[in-house]
Design a binder for these strands. Sequence first.
DNA 1: CTAATTGAACTGACCGGTCAGTTTGAATAA
DNA 2: TTATTCAAACTGACCGGTCAGTTCAATTAG
Lengths: 264, 264
Amino acid sequence: MSPARKEESMAQGGALGGGARREAEHDGGSAPTREVVRRPGRTNATRLKIFEASLSLIGERGHHAVTVDEIAAAAGVSKGSVYYNFGSKSDLIGQLLRFGTDILLDRLQSAGTPSSDPGSAATLSEVSPTEAEPAGPPSGTPDVARDRLAHMVRAALRFVDEYPAFAQLWISEMWHAPSDWRDVLVELRGEVLGVVRSAVGDVFRERGHADGDLPAGTVDVTASAVFGATLILAQDRQVFAVEHGVDVCVRTVLGCLDAVPPAG
Amino acid sequence: MSPARKEESMAQGGALGGGARREAEHDGGSAPTREVVRRPGRTNATRLKIFEASLSLIGERGHHAVTVDEIAAAAGVSKGSVYYNFGSKSDLIGQLLRFGTDILLDRLQSAGTPSSDPGSAATLSEVSPTEAEPAGPPSGTPDVARDRLAHMVRAALRFVDEYPAFAQLWISEMWHAPSDWRDVLVELRGEVLGVVRSAVGDVFRERGHADGDLPAGTVDVTASAVFGATLILAQDRQVFAVEHGVDVCVRTVLGCLDAVPPAG
DNA sequence: CTAATTGAACTGACCGGTCAGTTTGAATAA
DNA sequence: TTATTCAAACTGACCGGTCAGTTCAATTAG
């Protein structure tokens, strides 16, 4: 919710600034989106305000139930400005998806790298050590890859807490058969799943599995399952005010990996 | 997709036909919807056609993108007839949610009971025994509760294959903060989760856990995670044509339970 | 100067919901 | 049997409102 928060994220997120306007509407080439040389100053501020406003409105009410006029009003800009910066409502949403996903990817990635991120490192110390170490079938191994994955799940949970609106948007759009943004969505899903898959692969490797070791598709399925379970758990906490403790969630999700034995 | 298929399901589903209409709708009085004694014959046929049409249309394009006119046309009835049988578009969707959930519940329940269901029993014999029995941390225990849960996951996967449209509708509506059908949704979620939770509880008990044994919330979280992972996995198969093998999916999802050790 | 923004009016399509009227089939009357 | 009646079931044209998108002259800022 906090605007300041998002502005930061946007700054670091990098990839999102995207193109300026795009006329010559949809037609064939879905995204020519030429990379106009924008004036550095104000420009992004407006785009940012529009992003924020639409993220929260669309997130909580669904994009169909939100009008462009409302978005403009909430962002404190004119309707014309919305169309100047984004060519259409549809494009706006597409870029919004990209925007949010970049933040998520960033969080996942920094949660998945051993370095950096002192904040969550502190938080981590509660995950495995606590609870009398009841997790993971292999008894006393280092489990560094597993901890990294735990970090990622935790980060995802936190992300949804922070941007419930985006999670909502993602969920309701991602599994639509014929939606605009289908291409974007497929790409975004691929990116996110890629990150998760890589972390999952590390865990399996850590447990002594060779690359061709486990049944076909195991890594992919596990990554999807981990991601899906995390997403649904996180949304449940949000929407139904279920108080699923974070630790329990992390442990449970990680359990998916335990279906495959340590490979003796 | 096959209309015949759905009609069958409706017939067997039992709980859903609900006989005539279920008026006295949402109290609020918005729909006086008289308590009419419906004529037995034709009545349900029309409602059924409307159900089918809207399920497939709404499922694949989202309820906002589907007009009542379209539904009527697809059902081969007039628009007025839709309003005659259901008071409003919103009511129609609410009843659709109820309709589909009843089928799902039915499937889950019959998959979760040891008796009956020869068809899936046959299918079962491929789940655990196959794959060189690589599942479950406790080595050679009976695992009957676990098998039952596996049955349920399998049934859910099959359900989504059969009614992808409904799964889509469920996913995109379930986690909306302020939607109509909020009440219905909360109730439906509770019912489904209840069934899963009970099965999950059995598994834990089977592993020697007492009722107060495991950390607070474990059963609930596990149930949510199992359900969430299954749903997302199933939809992924549908929407992105990912060929996640059913067996791998079942095994992975069941893994969530392995996060909690057998409790020595 | 030029890029960015405003605000307000306007268009045109679309859509949920209504309603006066028609069809249907069964019960009743002749 | 045939005619009449009744109401449930159904029809589809129509209305009123909404909303994405357009246009443009005026204004501001770099």
